[in-house]
Simulated scan of single mutants.
Amino acid sequence: MKKRGKGMAAAFYGTGYGNGFPDVSTAKVQMNNRGQVSVCIGATEVGQGAKTILTQIAAEVLGLEMKDIRLLCEDTDTSPDAGTAAASRQTYNSGNAVKKAAEALKNILLERAQKHLELPSAHGLAVEDRQVYLKAYPKKRVHFRELVGEEPIRVEASFVAQTTPVDEETGAGAPYWPYTFCCYGVEVEVDTETGIVEVVRGVCAQDVGRAINPELIEGQIDGGFAMGLGYGLMEDLHLVQGEIKHNRFANYLIPTALDMPELEKMIIEDPESTGPFGAKGIGEPVMIPVAPAILNAIYDAIGIRFYEIPVTPEKILAAIRKRKKEGNCGNDFER
């Protein structure tokens, strides 16, 4: 017999290292006399889209297209330290560092353009298409390359996340900033004869601050859901006296595309004032509520609460047999 159930779970997550640990990202931005822009930062790309996001941020500040930006990262010879690709911090921390450096470069261009265009102030100047122009009189403009001398313009900027240690006695403090929020709802189908649980539908509402790249956000949600699904239902190391028995993918199961349900993604935008253009990091938060939501849905379907994961078919069947043996099933399998 197949039983359906629905479950929800919500989470809040503090991004960055937290608890007063120094959380610093540094970026360098350079422009040569051909108007070409390079961004150097040690932000590692591990599939989360850091290279795309950081390029977008620099391009937005400088009024350029992404193809106009050369991003140099993961090279310790040229790129300053940006911290680890962990704690969902790169968009927020390194994004802020790139934004600050790009803004510093932009200000130098505006000051030089003011003198070149013989204007009384830099007020009202803007950048687009490798040019600085006067918004009130757009014909008055100058190309970036005319503003750079023999030596390239080089600027460097750092961003330090705001975090304070928690008081060990009172528990008070601001260990993380900013926080992001996420909620999942899922519907499962539990086969009471085989113990197999299928997630048939899911919905995710994720607070992102501001969506710099909505497609990357949706990709993060898909990836986070897949990881949470595996965490909750499949991925069992089967540790026996310190030895991992499931030590190959033949017996350590992970989700495939066929295990993924229809997943509705809701991007919630409430710009974070301290974030780059209002953005927050969401790499890890999109995974956290998945397994709890699935376990709640299983409970809704068969009336049995599980407290250990993964909830494998063997555990489902064992719990059903125990319930029947104890004679406590009531109407759980009749509804």
Rank of each mutant, 00 (worst) to 15 (best):
V98K: 14
V197S: 05
A50N: 10
A86P: 00
V290D: 04
P175G: 03
V197N: 02
E198K: 13
R145Y: 11
R201I: 01
E308G: 08
M287G: 01
I57M: 07
Y179T: 04
V127L: 15
P175W: 04
E151C: 01
I320L: 09
T312R: 11
I108G: 00
Q90R: 13
T180N: 13
A85Q: 10
L125Y: 04
K315P: 01
E103C: 05
M266P: 00
A172E: 13
S88Y: 01
G230Y: 14
V199Q: 03
I309R: 05
A11Q: 13
K3I: 02
R89E: 09
I41W: 03
E187I: 05
G185I: 11
E235Q: 05
R210D: 00
G95E: 03
A174I: 01
L105T: 10
Y231A: 10
E284R: 04
T15C: 06
R112E: 12
A10K: 07
I288F: 11
R323I: 04
L125F: 11
E193A: 09
E326S: 08
V46G: 08
V208R: 03
L110S: 09
G124E: 10
L233S: 13
W177V: 03
D23Y: 06
I294T: 02
Y17N: 04
D207R: 08
K28P: 00
F21R: 14
S273Y: 08
N32K: 12
E264I: 06
F225E: 13
Y184R: 14
